[in-house]
Design a protein around this nucleic acid. Structure first.
Length: 919
RNA sequence: GCGCGCGUAGCUCAGCGGUAGAGCACUACGUUGACAUCGUAGGGGUCACUGGUUCGAUCCCAGUCGUGCGCACCA
């Protein structure tokens, strides 16, 4: 074995080996266990969030597979309508082409080509991550089968009246020329203005002043509203206003919506371009005047001077014209919420169009109940509140998108505009008994990507066919996802799952946090702080990293700032840490928190952990090299063997408990401590004198325990660190006559019996060794210098243990001789450094070694600490209420503490007095 | 406005009604044949603040301050 761990050298071959072995497919077994991969966008690449999520899913998958469950991790990808169409359009733009020139069919062909090219990147990344997904059944949302399922669901919902088509205001993205659902619109506060405009009274008796943030919409005004009972305006009711710049008159109406306190207390009403106004218009039966084209230029219903102008150019001109006409009262600065499309970033317009909707309330109700009654459990539990909050206020879902890439809406129109829905055109004709020669034209629009994603848990398993896979794995076990798509995806899967299968799609939802950079910033290409998981695995030079982060930016002017930060954060670039170190890092970061900061120091630490394990293995292999190691008799096992075996059993219980409760941070910590703090720091060190000086049975037992514990640790670790565990296991398992092609199908450790006696023994031994080491270190006695030791005041148990562990103790503490001082001893201990283990004093003669003054100051420091603790204890016990009310065990424990501290204080004082007398 | 979080060691975070923990960073010493990607020892915290409940609060409750996120919003 290499002297240090080199992930690059080992990771490659194992993934191929596993995949060729076919072990990623379900292996059978009584209990099914299934996780659906949240399908990544086929045209993207995996970012740190994906890698984190995939690590968690792979841990769960491997954990359950090793337990013998019939385990499936179902992979696949999403066609990501808008995002993908944008990517391909941008690529075409680079070649000077536009989709409108090439036509729908040719464009969609282009997208498929790109999909083939790009999709491979993600599978490649997942392979490097070690993801044990069932590649053989990988799905794509636009696959034939999944697409048929989409049509079937659409038709079925339509038959039930739960899908309808309607003309109403939607969020319109004027750059992408499509409708968006509420969720795809992000509103943020921005600087704007509030224009106060004079609307002249028709009777010539002055003005009413209305305030607006979007003056251009005045061209679509149909009324001015005031608050009912607003005394300023009561005399105006029934009067009319002239709409400036237009040849129209507006009624004055009263509506509760108006807040008389805000602005001037009157509101211009533009039903075609504002959601609130739309409602008011309906209440008052007002006309609706749409003034926009679908690219947000002004249409022909506005005065000629404004036609064809972009909405913002129109705004400027209108303000100028109002000013010229003396109708602009004032302009104020104003903060307001600006809605933007989440993909294009364009300001979204409320726009009157025909769209398809899902009537959501009937679907939401059972979905709410499923979480209320515990059929679905959120982890952490709190997320159910967010879920309920949204579900209780849910709005109908706009599912049509004016795009070319996606599932075409299965609806056809005749020349009179009648709508016929069916699985395909023939089905539509048949269902509606249409003549074969009736001309039909399919709806041009496609469905929201999330419509097909909502069906993912059952369509990937074969639905609507009642396949064996569907029967076996549905409902799935757990959904692992980020809270940012709880509405987009989680809620919709629950609704659709219940509707079409009658069962929940999953019984648990584990919501993980969001990976941020080391400064707590969300990672994004535009901020230039993204990390490619592969770069952490393989490493990347600084220059390449800078190039990667600054190329292809939407805002190229950000490049210098990005470069500066990158050079500061990664002055040396990124060394390759390997997949296992990265996975362990992700596991250790998977706390219940929402934000997760990713720092290089963390992954570096876990790379070192890999090296530690690697070298522990080297040690074990060196020990067994020229020996035959056999299963020892129980009686041959020494207390240190029984100790490490017992510690292992405890760790197994902890790790399993943490994995079962999705606490990957605690699980990885438990493994880390077992490997490093117990196995390496203590057992390996204790095994050395054992293997050097023990009899042959002891040596054999020690060798066997080294192998056994290491082999078991590898199985415990495998779900988190699949590569290094496999690599080492392949070398260790044969030594124990364990047969098996791979560690991934070996049984996951189950907790066995612990040995509290051995644990107590070794705890004592550790205290003894540490007592001596502390004296050495604090008095600057070289670690290698052998020392004589005097013992005083110990109990029978101390001396019994001493006898048993004499050699180990002397070896690890570097003690050359031990003398026990009984009460009759006259030997002076005045000039000894002292360390306390329970009631026993460990004394090291200082003659010629160091200055007694140093020892005195060292002892005084310890004394101070003990006195503080003593005071705490005696304070508690002095409180009558504490003694009377606290549980018996707590009081007893406190009394013992008091006694122990008192003893130490006495002993330390005594020693200080003696030593001071010497000076 | 409504909802959900967070504030613990220099940094990043666990913990949680009964002596404050980890990793990294820091200090001192150290090449004893697994490992310097290391070892040994050590320093470092009125657990944001104020009240309350309790024998006992970092933990439970109320409030304050700071901070983050989601949803809905007044033209």
């Amino acid at each position: 074995m290499d002297k240090s761990y080199n992930p690059g050298a080992i990771e490659k071959r194992w993934y191929d080996y596993w995949e060729k072995g076919g072990w990623f497919s379900p292996q059978g077994g009584e209990k099914p266990y299934c996780i659906m991969l949240p399908p990544p966008n086929v045209t993207g690449t995996l970012h740190m969030g994906h890698a984190f999520q995939d690590t968690i899913m792979d841990i769960l998958t491997r954990y359950h597979r090793m337990q013998g469950d019939n385990t499936l991790w179902q992979p696949g990808m999403d066609h990501a309508g808008i995002a993908t169409q944008m990517v391909v359009e941008r690529r075409l733009a680079g070649e000077g082409k536009h989709r409108r020139d090439m036509g729908r069919e040719a464009f969609v062909d282009e997208v498929w080509k790109w999909k083939e090219e790009s999709g491979g990147k993600i599978t490649n990344q997942m392979r490097h991550l070690g993801a044990s997904v069932d590649w053989g059944h990988s799905c794509f949302t636009m696959d034939e089968g999944l697409s048929e399922a989409v049509s079937k669901v659409f038709v079925s919902l339509h038959d039930e009246g739960l899908i309808y088509r309607g003309k109403r205001l939607v969020n319109w993205d004027p750059v992408l020329h499509t409708a968006l659902s509420d969720l795809e619109v992000l509103s943020e506060e921005e600087n704007g203005k509030l224009w106060h405009i004079r609307y002249p009274r028709r009777d010539g008796k002055g003005y009413m002043i209305v305030a607006t943030t979007r003056p251009e919409t005045m061209l679509g005004d149909v009324a001015v509203a005031v608050s009912p009972g607003d005394e300023r305006y009561t005399d105006l009711l029934g009067a009319e206003l002239e709409l400036p710049l237009c040849d129209r008159y507006l009624p004055i109406i009263e509506d509760d919506y108006v807040d008389s306190e805000f602005g001037t207390g009157c509101v211009k009403i533009t039903p075609a371009h504002d959601f609130n106004d739309y409602d008011i218009g309906k209440r008052h039966d007002l006309p609706i005047i749409n003034i926009l084209n679908d690219d947000a230029t002004l249409n022909d219903s506005v005065p000629e001077a404004y036609r064809g102008l972009d909405r913002f150019a129109a705004r400027e001109k209108i303000v100028e014209d109002l000013k010229a006409a003396g109708l602009l009262e004032k302009i104020e600065d104003h903060r307001l919420m600006i809605p933007r499309g989440d993909r294009s970033g364009a300001i979204v317009e409320p726009y009157l169009t025909d769209q398809w909707y899902v009537q959501i309330e009937p679907l939401a109700k059972p979905a709410i109940e499923a979480v209320e009654n515990g059929q679905i459990r959120f982890v952490p539990e709190n997320w159910s509140k967010t879920y309920f909050e949204w579900m209780h206020n849910i709005q109908d879902w706009c599912i049509s998108r004016q795009l070319w890439w996606g599932h075409r809406i299965p609806a056809w129109y005749d020349n009179d505009g009648n709508i016929y829905v069916g699985l395909d055109e023939a089905d539509a004709r048949q269902r509606n008994k249409l003549a074969d020669d009736l001309e039909l034209k399919q709806d041009e629009d496609v469905l929201d990507t999330w419509f097909s994603s909502a069906l993912w848990p059952f369509t990937t398993l074969g639905w609507p066919e009642q396949t064996k896979r569907l029967e076996t794995f549905y409902p799935t076990s757990v959904l692992v996802t980020g809270f940012d798509i709880i509405f987009f995806w989680v809620a919709r899967m629950i609704m659709m799952g219940l509707k079409f299968t009658g069962e929940v799609p999953f019984t648990e939802v584990y919501m993980h946090g969001l990976i941020r950079d080391s400064h707590g910033q969300k990672m994004s290409k535009s901020k230039g702080n993204v990390l490619d998981p592969l770069d952490l695995i393989h490493g990347i030079e600084l220059e390449a990293l800078v190039e990667k982060r600054t190329s292809g930016l939407m805002q190229p002017q950000m490049a210098p700032a990005i470069e500066r930060v990158t050079r500061k954060d990664f002055p040396e670039g990124i060394p390759g840490f390997g997949t296992d170190a990265m996975r362990f890092t992700f596991a250790s970061l998977a706390t219940n928190g929402r934000d997760i900061r990713f720092e290089l120091s963390r992954i570096e630490g876990y790379r070192n952990f890999c090296n530690k394990l690697w070298n522990a293995t080297r040690y074990v292999l060196m020990q067994i090299e020229d020996e035959t190691t056999t299963q020892p008799e129980a009686g041959d096992l020494s207390p240190i063997d029984n100790w490490i075996l017992s510690r292992f059993e405890r760790a197994v219980g902890e790790v399993r408990g943490h994995l079962d409760s999705y606490r990957f941070d605690l699980a990885s910590q438990a493994i880390y401590e077992l490997v490093w703090d117990e196995f390496c720091d203590w057992y390996l060190e204790l095994s050395k004198p054992q293997l050097r000086h023990g009899d042959s049975a002891t040596k054999n037992a020690t060798r066997h325990t080294l192998l056994k514990v290491l082999e078991s640790i590898l199985r415990l670790l495998h779900p988190v660190m699949p590569y290094i565990s496999e690599e080492i296991w392949q070398r260790i398992a044969p030594e124990l006559d364990i047969k098996g092609e791979t560690i991934m199908l070996q049984p996951y450790p189950e907790p066995g019996a612990t040995d509290s006696e051995a644990e107590a023994d070794i705890a004592w031994l550790k205290l003894m060794i540490q007592g001596v080491r502390r004296i050495r270190s604090e008095l600057n006695i070289p670690p290698g210098k052998p020392l004589p030791l005097l013992l005083q005041g110990g109990q029978a148990s101390d001396y019994a243990r001493l006898q048993q562990f004499n050699d180990l103790f002397c070896a690890l503490a570097r003690i050359e001789s031990i003398e026990i001082l009984d009460d009759s001893s006259t030997k002076t201990t005045d000039d000894c450094a002292v360390s306390l283990v329970d009631k026993m004093k460990l004394l090291i003669p200082l003659a010629g070694l160091i200055d007694t003054a140093e020892e005195i100051s060292r002892l005084k420091k310890q004394l101070q600490k003990e006195e503080i603790e003593l005071k705490k204890s005696s304070g508690k016990l002095g409180n009558k209420n504490f003694v009377a009310n606290a549980p018996e065990a707590v009081v007893t424990q406190e009394r013992e503490r008091l006694e122990a501290h008192q003893l130490k204080v006495d002993q330390l004082q005594e020693q200080i007095t003696k030593m001071e007398a010497l000076n």
